[in-house]
Write a protein that binds this DNA or RNA. Sequence first.
DNA 1: GATGAATGAGCATTCATTCAT
DNA 2: CATGAATGAATGCTCATTCAT
Lengths: 194, 194, 194, 194
Amino acid sequence: MKKNKPKYNQIIEAAVEVIAENGYHASQVSKIAKKAGVADGTIYLYFKNKEDILISVFEEKMGQFIAHITEAIENKNNADEKLFELIKLHFRQLSEDHHLAIVTQLELRQSNPSLRLQINNVLKPYLNVIDSIIKEGMQEEIFRNSLNVRLVRQMIFGTLDETVTNWVMKDRKYNLVEQATEVHTLLTEGLHSK
Amino acid sequence: MKKNKPKYNQIIEAAVEVIAENGYHASQVSKIAKKAGVADGTIYLYFKNKEDILISVFEEKMGQFIAHITEAIENKNNADEKLFELIKLHFRQLSEDHHLAIVTQLELRQSNPSLRLQINNVLKPYLNVIDSIIKEGMQEEIFRNSLNVRLVRQMIFGTLDETVTNWVMKDRKYNLVEQATEVHTLLTEGLHSK
Amino acid sequence: MKKNKPKYNQIIEAAVEVIAENGYHASQVSKIAKKAGVADGTIYLYFKNKEDILISVFEEKMGQFIAHITEAIENKNNADEKLFELIKLHFRQLSEDHHLAIVTQLELRQSNPSLRLQINNVLKPYLNVIDSIIKEGMQEEIFRNSLNVRLVRQMIFGTLDETVTNWVMKDRKYNLVEQATEVHTLLTEGLHSK
Amino acid sequence: MKKNKPKYNQIIEAAVEVIAENGYHASQVSKIAKKAGVADGTIYLYFKNKEDILISVFEEKMGQFIAHITEAIENKNNADEKLFELIKLHFRQLSEDHHLAIVTQLELRQSNPSLRLQINNVLKPYLNVIDSIIKEGMQEEIFRNSLNVRLVRQMIFGTLDETVTNWVMKDRKYNLVEQATEVHTLLTEGLHSK
DNA sequence: GATGAATGAGCATTCATTCAT
DNA sequence: CATGAATGAATGCTCATTCAT
């Protein structure tokens, strides 16, 4: 398994840094190789091509991201708490690794639609986590039982994603994690006064 | 005023089509020129460079998009109706011009960060429209008066954007406009059962 | 005769200025047209193509240059005085019109060899003037009678040309005309001590 | 040291030939690469850009040219003999490599002023050699002691340069080296009969 | 004669990928 | 396994010239 070899991870880490620092289009394979301390050709012993590096970056990082969230919400008692935890961790993890935040929110979106499809596959487990929270909430009758799961998931993910993107584009000038409570309330209570 | 000259619009329309059909990175200037029925050099009488074509496409189309929505919600009686109208028109306009939908939801996101800043400027008036609806809703006491306008706007825009992007990525297999009511309810009522 | 029409001269004068200010390769036809106050297309009513403008510039200016020198040396009594007068006027005329000096010494040399051949034709009457001074000097027995006219002419012209070019390249920081006496002595007396 | 690699020299030699045969402006990088037997991209492993090829051509060739002359005049006994040797070698070296002669006398002069400055730097050691001969001649009292070194150098270099250029432009129809004696006499004895 | 909008050929340079060592 | 020199396809933009008005 190539993924356990040290150079594989060196290249992944180098790629995140290079992309975050230089932007997607200025991230030549040779630059990643240099930062990883390997020869250009060595890259191709571990990755099929440049696109494969990007997908792998996302897979590795997103895998950890999701594993972390999945684990954390297991202990929570109900859908409401789980949703809140998911929001907090979504924000916290990207706050703590701003290179990763730049790469996921800005740079990776510059890829072509075919690459984006693959990225969506990587994202799917995360969307499934969101879906299961929604379903659990309906079962627990904490959430309304008539919810369209797909639409709700798009609202939740769209809101989180847009919030993080704005924060990155505003140069991370404010505290993202502090927004979690308010975002949670908005999603659960809606805009209407009662 | 160059924008009134017919070739300007020919090029804009050609650009939308070419980008939607071929993707951003496979959209050579020569391809756009050919589709527009002008010489390559003519492009540069109307646009500073290739990036300028993209920005102009977005400006023109987004300008109409916003103008249409702004006008339509003027007649509505309260924030709730305005928000609903905005959602419907956001969905309807992109439904009716699927080339434009592809370009705005997928291709334009491949641009570099500098271009994205300019795109954000074009988007700003639209976000302002959303903001004013939120503020009006608070004044009318239809919406809760403690809302964080920026966060709410991010929730609304993020939800609409994610919804349209998913619809485009699913090859527009279902009716987008029909989702408007449900999305409106989700945004205003939230997830919680009452 | 086109040369008597005012626009012809406007274009010639504009061309000298534009080339001197921007350099040969940055001197687009449109720039010359603008400075001359005519439309781009109008240039082509007076000149066959861009190269023709350059040749005409050189013809016009060199014509005056030679006419002036020819006239001035007519009154001189012998070859020695004529040579001295030629040196002085060569230096003085280029000193007094530094745009022309830049164009003839630097910019026009960037032209292609075919153009350079035509420029040499324009130069020929000037070289003939030098030749006739040499021949006269031999007849008058002021100059040695065994001189190879072509070589002497190359020495004289080469020396003047190199001197002016150096002066232009040194940003005309010293007085060129003051060098005339010394150059004349060098050419006539040579390097050897007697 | 890149200059010792065979491809570096292959490209230099190819560039001289291509420029001499096609002229400066018709010498595409791809043409040079083809003649050198390397890929287009390989050029850029050895040279910064197209202009850098030209400067390097001149540096390499002029370096040899000057080294050869410097070495040869070392053994000569006085300034007079040294000057004569310099003239002979200047003519002989360009005679023997007519591609180089075309490039230095015609094609390289088409370069822009910025490039010309760099070429002048390459030329400087040669001008210094000429200067030192002049100074030695004055010390040895072979040359007049009141000579203006700069002007004399301009006379010598200007004469040689103009002589070679004429010979190239006349398609090298006569023997250049045979002119050396006469040119030497002209420079040292001047035009005046004694 | 005069205009200036339109034309379209032409080219330096980058960089992902390969493969001989 | 690892290297890094070599490859060569691919494209945005300029500007001299034309010609309908």
